[in-house]
Design a protein around this nucleic acid. Structure first.
Lengths: 213, 213
DNA sequence: CAAGGGTGTTACCTCGGGTAACATCAGCAG
DNA sequence: CTGCTGATGTTACCCGAGGTAACACCCTTG
């Protein structure tokens, strides 16, 4: 490696390829083929594979570029010195604003696999949808939520089912605790323990590893 | 259609194929190829396509069989006359027990797309993982949760990120309300409004459409 | 004995991920 | 100038998976 500090000619090409991949994904969605991406870049497949190894590597590089932005925003929001309720709202708003600004990219981040080119509506797992509906109905029928009843119930139906899906997914994979404890942890969350818990004093001793890029 | 009420010879074969597909999925995971499924059934591909149209149809038939069970269990749990907190726990436990009993099938239900045969750990979206980590760190650092701190924080990290993912997904797709209202709805949920809201009287006038199979 | 419907097969097509082998052009050492 | 190295690029191919066409078998019914 003769040149000591001149990646200025090497990096840009990779960036350029990623930009092309970006454009291709914007056009064709997350299922854009390697051929399509290569064509968008004005080159052919093998070059992509030389740079990124395989499709997974390309997608990963692509997602990392975008997640870094969203993640940084969320980190910043989480670090703001707000009341906890305000903090929660701030983070939620940051996330929603992030996905709102680039829907195609968002789809890539959350649904990296091709997905069906036919049905647009199949956002999350089909089973989840039905569970969400059940929860919605239950909340609507059993909980007094005032004027916003319908919207709240439906939102909560999605939210709770997604919450349980993600947590259950992780639990199945890792088995960090018994099922009963898991149930307690999730019920506690839904039960407002996040609101009820006392604030910890601002930590000055240990930095919780918020490494920035 | 000469035979009036004798699908007894037609249905069983289809059921039998579904059983074979079940076995194949248990063995090879959700990405089981049509060839593999056909082999497990002791036949070849075209028969599968005759019965189910395409892979999507097969997967759908398979998921419907299993969701009906899980969904019925959740419905039953939701309908039990328990205190709301107990009800929440009951439903959570029902769901977790359901996915625990058949992990491979669960994967099929929630991650119908092939997924990477190489990396096992990629359960949910890669971006989500990092967001979950951030939330975990934030909760650990800012909220006093007592002895279960670590487990609760990590569980909540996954749970909250999954919740926001699902809700955001739905919101992006449907745009049922403004972003600000969405933020409020989600923050309210995390804030214990589910716990704080009054019970609705048991509805006797309208049946909320809990149709059973 | 046909006719029809279900079950089954082999052989093929298409498309997408992934790779091997070869061509080219830059810069740099001798 | 020659020749090495390393990056960029190409064509042509392999493989596996979804999906289909065409043909064969059996069994029931008229």
């Amino acid at each position: 490696m003769p040149d000591s500090a001149a990646p200025a000619t090497g990096e840009p090409r990779r960036e350029q390829l990623l930009n092309a991949a970006d454009r291709a994904v914007q056009q064709f969605g997350p299922g854009a083929s390697m051929n399509a991406i290569a064509a968008e870049a004005g080159i052919t497949k093998p070059i992509l594979y030389r740079h990124f190894g395989d499709r997974h590597g390309l997608i990963r590089a692509l997602t990392e570029r975008h997640t870094s932005g969203l993640l940084a925003a969320i980190r910043a929001a989480l670090a703001e010195p707000l009341e906890r309720r305000d903090l929660v709202e701030k983070v939620l708003d940051t996330y929603l604003a992030g996905i709102e600004s680039r829907p195609q990219i968002y789809r890539l981040l959350t649904h990296p696999e091709p997905g069906d080119p036919s049905g647009i509506g199949s956002a999350l797992a089909p089973a989840l949808q039905q569970i969400a509906d059940e929860i919605t109905k239950a909340v609507q029928g059993q909980v007094d939520l005032g004027a916003d009843r319908e919207l709240l119930a439906e939102t909560w139906g999605r939210a709770i089912s997604g919450m349980v899906l993600a947590a259950g997914d992780w639990w199945l994979e890792q088995r960090p605790c018994s099922r009963a404890r898991m149930v307690q942890a999730l019920a506690d969350l839904l039960w407002g323990r996040l609101a009820a818990a006392a604030n910890l004093p601002v930590p000055l001793t240990t930095n919780h590893g918020t490494e920035q890029t």
